[in-house]
Design a protein around this nucleic acid. Structure first.
Lengths: 224, 224
DNA sequence: TAATAATGAAAGTAATACTATTATATTTGT
DNA sequence: ACAAATATAATAGTATTACTTTCATTATTA
């Protein structure tokens, strides 16, 4: 079963890298170790120099793959959302009822993350934490409009569209399908962050799951 | 009417500043011009050196007020949320019905921001944009737990508690009052950002207001 | 008016975020 | 098998950042 997807590759907009990191061992360890280091030390403290030391390579070689650490973050974000989209497609294919589709979407968005053997150089558990802690920084910039125009956020936007499509199927009269969809994506990340750092301003914890909250929200908003 | 609040001061945790900027002209221009510059150039490009040049003062003098630009951001965030809380208190006092209270809360959170003459050195319109674009960066850090422990986010948490209190009043059986409240605060900021930069993944625009979406959400979630 | 506190000016430090150059491997095409 | 092309490593260099330190000057207050 696993082998079916051995040739599966998450497609990422060419503009975010200078050289595709999937095409070499060095590229893969930039991505793989980059995730681990950003997870461990945070995006602000992370530098290409430190990454070079860790992977036994040179700073200047890393710059041949990514223009800056911001571009690496855009790459990781596209990779993550592409991977989430792939899991959502698998989980919802052949499911007819949109309410069951949305239930499964929410479980993918905020359920426990497990390592995916189809992508061996990426630690998805660490990447998930990186996205919770750093994803917002990829678009809260002064360059967001030009980068959006270039298409660097297209994977994320396509995912919002996919989920808003299910919302429209479930209730075609609902007035805010895109806003609800984008709120689910952002909100699931945010509630996971609060659960770990600000437990007094969330009801989510080990017992009450993040998707319990959003499941209730979605079905209250969409019921007719 | 305005004069009643001339002596009103937004109280901010002492730990975020080294010297209270409200106590001097220099301090006020650090805050006032700091807001304008972060708004104009973004938090990443903003430095104390550039701020010093703008206000005709020295970098080292600014460091006597704030340990770092991160601390200045924490200060601005506390100021902003304190100011929002003050507006919410004014707007909801003497209002009995919790649904009307929540309606007014949502209007404060995502309605148009106007300059507040009670706080002359702060441009609230610019500060509102700064919060939309930069607030997340104040807590998406490796230091968040120790800073939270110090109390640097207490204004924000108190605001979440105030709104979740209204939610509980409106429906005491609702299972996720804190999560809904924190989703409203984060979500209103996020939808305002999407409206300005990613219009295809939100339904909010000049016609459909951000609080129309959240008003619908809150009342669907809380109706019995 | 003397003491105290606040601000300014200047210099210094370690690190960041790169770029450029040159040397050395490694891969590939014939 | 060998030359050519490509990838990587090593080194150095630059402008800027994020501070700290020291000392001089200017306000404030007792």
């Amino acid at each position: 079963m696993e082998n079916i997807f051995n040739s599966f590759k998450i497609v990422i907009h060419e503009g975010v890298f200078k050289k595709d990191p999937e095409t070499s061992d060095l590229g893969k360890s930039i991505v793989g170790k980059g995730i681990d280091m950003i997870d461990a030390m945070g995006f602000e403290s992370f530098t290409f120099k430190k990454l070079g030391e860790q992977i036994g390579s040179n700073e200047s070689s890393i710059y041949r793959y990514f223009e800056s650490k911001h571009m690496l973050l855009l790459y990781l974000a596209s990779w993550y959302w592409g991977w989430v989209e792939y899991k959502i497609v698998l989980q919802t294919m052949n499911i007819k009822q949109p309410d069951e589709q949305l239930r499964r979407v929410l479980e993918v968005l905020s359920g426990e993350v497990l390592e995916d053997k189809n992508f061996s150089h990426v630690n998805e558990v660490a990447l998930h934490r990186v996205i919770i802690n750093e994803y917002s920084k990829s678009y809260l910039t002064k360059t967001v409009d030009s980068e959006n125009k270039e298409g660097y956020f297209s994977v994320y936007k396509r995912l919002v569209g996919r989920i808003s499509g299910m919302i429209k199927e479930m209730n075609p009269t609902y007035a805010f399908p895109e806003s609800l969809s984008s709120t689910l994506l952002e909100g699931t990340l945010h509630q996971q962050f609060l659960r770990d750092h600000f437990p007094t301003i969330t009801n989510c914890n080990k017992q009450v799951l993040v998707h319990d909250f959003f499941f209730d929200m979605v079905f209250n908003c969409l019921k007719r």
